[in-house]
């Protein structure tokens, strides 16, 4: 069994101990002993995706600005510092000037400071509305997907009814239920609209999980039903829901802006909010489009940021891309 071609004995002898050779081979292919979980490998792919990086940069910037805005803003956003330059008769607003790079609004408040501080409200509305919507959807979707039968039918009929009403109309109706509109009613209205979307999505992927082999394997193993739902079905169903949550954040910000724009938001304009600023600018949009341009631009960019992140996460979590 000696080789017809033999060279230096520098290498470890090949014959004997194929196991060692295979182990060495496995080690050389760069696989360590610590396993790489699905989430970790998804993150690894995300980090290299430029779409994700752009979206994430926008979001990080947005969150940082929102958190630091009280210090970033040069002026009190509700102080009418430039009131003297406002002339209703001649339809004039304060132009850009030193200390006020974007000028003032129609009552003489600093536009840049209002934009910066306004991000806070927008972030809060988006996050709270999404979290509440997600929580409601998780409960309903898990119930329907895990229990099935009449619970499933009942939950899904309710969800169908809610989905059949246009979302903005539904949000209006909910907002209008309250005698006095406030930031809280906006959050509640936007959240309620999201619940059926999350519920249906989660229920669908839970049902797919219920028929999957690994859930059957857990049943065959005699794992308790509750553990099957919470250890196997739910974690494996969450991927699309998380993606949806990111996309919903964008929608929530737009919806909240729409409600504020239409006067169903916080009437107290001493606390600025982008949608409300946009609404306030509609009277002067012909003469002073910049008053509408800035808040609208902010809404679009932030919504785009969340959408980019959501889309790239959808790709990263797709099991087909797993390696």
């Amino acid at each position: 069994m000696t080789g017809s071609v033999s060279r230096s004995g520098a290498r470890p002898p090949l014959l004997g101990g194929r196991k060692e050779r295979l182990d060495a081979l496995a080690a050389s292919s760069g696989k360590g002993d610590a396993g790489v979980s699905l989430a970790a490998s998804a993150w690894r792919r995300l980090r290299r995706n430029p779409v994700f990086l752009v979206g994430a940069a926008i979001i990080v910037l947005f969150v940082v600005v929102a958190l630091l805005s009280p210090w970033l803003a040069a002026h009190d956003p509700s102080a009418r510092l430039l009131e003297g330059q406002v002339s209703r008769a001649r339809n004039e607003i304060p132009p850009a000037q030193e200390g006020f790079p974007l000028g003032g609004d129609q009552v003489g408040r600093d536009l840049l400071s209002r934009l910066l501080v306004g991000s806070q409200q927008t972030l809060m509305v988006g996050v709270f509305a999404t979290v509440i919507g997600l929580a409601g959807g998780l409960v309903l979707g898990t119930l329907a997907g895990a229990l099935g039968g009449w619970v499933d039918s009942l939950v899904m009929r309710v969800v169908d009814v809610m989905l059949s009403i246009p979302s903005l109309l539904l949000a209006f109706s909910i907002g209008a239920l309250f005698p006095r509109p406030s930031q809280f009613t906006v959050i509640l209205a936007v959240a309620t609209v999201q619940i059926p979307i999350f519920a249906r999505l989660l229920r669908g992927s839970m049902l797919a999980q219920r028929g999957s082999d690994h859930v059957l394997a857990a049943r065959a193993l005699g794992v308790r039903p509750r553990a099957i739902v919470f250890r196997h079905m739910l974690p494996n169903s969450l991927g699309p829901v998380i993606v949806q949550a990111t996309l919903v954040l964008a929608v929530a910000i737009i919806d909240a802006a729409a409600l504020s724009f239409l006067g169903l938001g916080n009437p107290d304009d001493s606390i600025p909010e982008w949608g409300q600023m946009l609404g306030g600018a509609q009277n002067v949009i012909d003469s002073h489009p910049s008053l509408a341009f800035w808040p609208a631009g902010c809404i679009i960019v932030v919504a785009l940021g969340f959408t980019l992140v959501g889309e790239s996460m959808r790709d990263a979590l797709d099991p087909k891309n797993r390696r």
Partner: peptide, 18 residues
């Protein structure tokens, strides 16, 4: 169920990926 177990056809789909 402890006394009767099952081995599946598709080894990947029958193992919980998470």
């Amino acid at each position: 169920r402890r006394r009767m177990q099952m081995v599946f056809q598709d080894p990947l789909s029958s193992l919980d990926p998470r």
